[in-house]
Amino acid sequence: MKLTIIGMDIAKQVFQLHALDPQSGQVERFKLKRAQVLEFFAKRAPSIVVMEACGSAHDWARRLQALGHEAKLISARSVRPFVLRNKTDAADARAICTAAQQPEARFVAVKSEAQQTVLAIHRVRAQLMKFRIMQTNALRGLLYEFGEVLPESYRAFSKAFPAALTRAAERLPAMLIDSLREQWARAQDTDREMAVLERRLANLFRHNPDCQKVADIPGVGLLTATATVAAIGDVRTFKSGREFAAWLGLVPRQSGTGGRVRQMGLSKRGDTYLRTLLMHGARSVIIQGKRSPWVDGLLKRRPFNVAVAAVANKLARTIWAVLARPDKYQASPRATA
């Protein structure tokens, strides 16, 4: 017996449902308030409930699974072509239902609360990092206007700033020096808050065997290991390492016509934050790690950034292989890193 497919357009207050019985072809439409959704599904026979992978979708999927339904999340990019004419909540729900029935439909794995907790900590840390960069850039720019040139990296900046501020205090008004000193104090507070979050991630790392397995790979550290394991969840979601790399946007885009296919730049689909971490890890492997003949040959044939993207792609494939198999990572003489 085929289950009824229900496309649900979620929102803050009003939810639109489009249900299709695959046996009879009967279509039902419902408009529910937020408080009525769980009560509606509790009384309904088990169904396949499909939602766009957007805000609060994972939470709703977990709640519906607890009620005995099969919850699926689909990318909004896959739904958009099926929204005909005007965009309304009812049209979105119908488009979700239609997109879920396509043979090439790709679904997003439902994340657990533990996974979302780790990813939320990463998002907060990334936001604090942006704040710190903005604060130090402002200080660097303001002091540059008065002839003081400071280095770019935060570590070097923190060492050079006190001396630069002392020199500036000899000839600039006290009210400006006090303002700059307060700005620097805010940047240091932000750095301390980031350190607290990193200690929390380190605690999670110590209690997660998968994170420790992944961290054995050169180029993968605390941040990359915890973020990757939390983002993947069930590694069986991906059939291969290449599919995982494609999910992260670390494979070339393709454009073809007339039987001719061109390889273009990186697709840059998927999680930007996780892709950035892998690119940083790949860059550290090339600059600081022991390079293999494959990497040396790649650097001779291609620009540096192309080589970084290739190593990041290989890092993603290696992470998938380590998580998909019981064995630990073992470096080989011909390995990339």
Rank of each mutant, 00 (worst) to 15 (best):
V83C: 14
T226K: 00
K130L: 07
A187L: 00
F30Q: 11
A312G: 08
V149D: 12
K43R: 08
T237N: 08
T166S: 09
Q36C: 04
G289S: 01
Q116M: 12
R29L: 07
L73Y: 07
R62F: 10
L315G: 03
E113K: 15
Q13G: 07
R253K: 10
V295T: 07
I133D: 08
A105W: 09
L139D: 03
A138P: 01
R242K: 11
F146N: 11
G258I: 05
I48K: 13
T166R: 11
F107L: 15
W294Q: 09
I74R: 10
L142G: 03
I6P: 04
F157Q: 04
L201M: 09
A99Q: 08
G141F: 01
F40T: 07
L142C: 05
A53H: 07
S292G: 07
V110H: 04
F157H: 00
I319M: 04
F107Q: 03
T190G: 01
A156D: 13
Q288P: 00
L67P: 14
A19L: 12
A215I: 00
D189M: 09
T224N: 04
Y273T: 14
L204S: 00
Q23L: 13
I10F: 13
D216L: 11
S75P: 12
K290G: 14
L274Q: 05
E39W: 15
E198D: 15
K87F: 12
I5P: 13
D191N: 11
V149Y: 13
I96V: 15
E243Y: 05
A100R: 02
D271I: 03
P333N: 09
G141T: 03
A99G: 11
A61L: 08
T237E: 09
G221M: 02
D271A: 03
T257N: 10
R155K: 12
R123S: 12
D210I: 08
V196D: 04
P103S: 02
A168W: 02
D89R: 09
R291I: 11
V50L: 06
H207S: 06
A105N: 06
L298Q: 03
M129F: 10
E104W: 13
K159A: 13
A312D: 05
R186F: 15
R171T: 13
T228Y: 03
